[in-house]
Amino acid sequence: MRLRTPLAQARGLGAAREGIHHWWTQRLTALALIPLSLWLVASIITITGADYATAVEWVQSPVVAVLLLLFIAVAFYHAQLGMQVVLEDYVHGGWAKVATIILSKFLMIALAFVAGFAVLRVALGG
């Protein structure tokens, strides 16, 4: 049985005006975060209590630098999607809802750029 009208199917948008994009990207980023976050925890454990030189050497390894950047990009994208759902559910009132969602997205992007810049600075700093 099909409940969707042909028009809705043609547009593929639905009530959220973006179809399944949010749902699908949340799953894709979740899938990518399984190996990325397991790697992150395991890798950080190897430099527990490390001094500055050891930690710099760790970030300057190309594999570590790229994986850190990947983790930062995917994790903050996933975080921003998740926060949106939580705010949509718990913040009531049109403007408050929209404002907190926008603020949370800006904050997530800003944190991602700060983290990414820190990694690049250490990795390329020489």
Partner: peptide, 24 residues
């Protein structure tokens, strides 16, 4: 949901740690 939000808050110490490494 709770751990999801906690992890968002938890990005702050993570970013601080990376920033501290970049700062010297």
């Amino acid at each position: 949901r709770l751990t999801g939000v906690a992890l968002v808050v938890g990005t702050i110490p993570f970013v601080y740690w990376l920033g501290a490494l970049a700062a010297g």
